[in-house]
């Protein structure tokens, strides 16, 4: 690849991620605000849920993560500090949502980070909240770096597609580096189902394998097919950077999450719901609901309407 073409590749991504020459519609704006609300509500929910758990259960740091490597987070374990922090995230989220203070979202992300590292100081590295965290980061940068609501919307969506696509592809690369080309061997899924059986027994006192798990336990080659699909879905996730592949690729990743749920009883709820929000043209659905004339005239009218 020549130097000029390698320079033009990032530039060619800009219109794919952030460019949208079509006039902005009410559906676009409502869709963005709903996505923003979804991310903020989920962030607040995580913080309150973790806050109560920290107060109830945690009293020491077994494995410091993130900023806990540099700051003693044991202060979050008592005196309702974790709950106060959850309240702070909620307040900052509201200030950002109503555009009252532009640094609010980025400060909320810092509090959100501390809540995460306090909650997961016992050794578990949970990835269930990473996409919501990336959402808050994207919104935070958008609010601070751009004054135009239209550009904030375009930046946030582009930011999310870029880093979500990168993250899932990175997961596929990690598997190929960590295990090799034989990662999709169905016997590996047998091991994970066995692990989940022990976890489920420990959590609930009982475990009943579902139909898919029974299939894999009967013949591990079904597991090979499931793992092959999962690895493929992750590997091609970066293709969501391009508009023409975006919706099918995001929905493929949603399908992979459904596969993880049925094969291993692990449901990444926040990630799956966020992907469903990002994987369908909800702006057009909203336009159709808001207007009896979704053909295009409403686009122009909404552009000219006073703020």
């Amino acid at each position: 690849m020549s130097a000029s073409s390698s320079r033009s590749f990032p530039l060619s991504l800009a219109p794919e991620l952030f460019g949208d020459d079509a006039p902005e519609t009410r559906g676009d704006r409502v869709y963005f605000r709903l996505l923003e609300l979804f991310i903020l509500v989920y962030a607040a929910w995580f913080c309150w849920d973790w806050g109560f758990y920290i107060q109830q259960n945690i009293s020491s740091v077994l494995l410091p993560l993130g900023l806990a490597n540099y700051v003693d987070v044991s202060l979050f374990f008592d005196h309702q500090v974790a709950l106060i922090n959850a309240g702070l995230v909620t307040l900052l989220g509201a200030l950002g949502f109503f555009r009252l203070w532009r640094p609010a979202y980025l400060l909320a992300l810092i509090s959100f980070h501390f809540q995460y590292v306090a909650r997961y100081s016992l050794g578990e590295i949970s990835h269930g909240s990473n996409l919501i965290g990336m959402g808050v980061l994207g919104l935070g940068i958008a609010l601070l770096a751009f004054r135009s609501e239209s550009m904030r919307r375009r930046f946030t969506f582009g930011f999310l597609y870029f880093f979500i696509g990168l993250g899932y592809t990175s997961a596929a690369v990690s598997k190929l580096i960590g295990t090799g080309l034989y990662w999709p061997d169905g016997r590996h899924l047998l091991m994970w189902i066995g692990e989940r059986k022990v976890d489920t027994l420990s959590k609930f006192g009982a475990f009943d394998p579902n139909v898919l798990q029974d299939l894999v336990l009967t013949d591990y080659r079904f597991g090979t097919a499931i793992l092959l699909f999962g690895l493929f879905a992750e590997a091609v996730s970066f293709l969501m950077w391009w508009k023409s592949y975006r919706y099918p690729i995001v929905l493929l990743v949603v399908g992979m999450h459904i596969g993880i749920y049925f094969s291993m009883n692990i449901f990444f709820a926040a990630s799956t719901y966020l992907l469903i929000l990002l994987g369908l043209p909800w702006n057009r659905v909203i336009d159709a609901l808001l207007s009896s004339d979704p053909s295009g005239e409403d686009r122009v009218a909404s552009q000219k309407a006073p703020a």
């Binding site: 993560l65 990473n130 808050v136 997961a171 960590g178 295990t179 016997r187 692990e195």
Partner: peptide, 25 residues
Amino acid sequence: HKGEFWPFSIYPMFSQAGNPWTRAV
């Protein structure tokens, strides 16, 4: 930071396939 600095991650979950696992009951 060993691949993890929330919300950034290289997402290494399930990358060590086939290895013995240890859990608790």
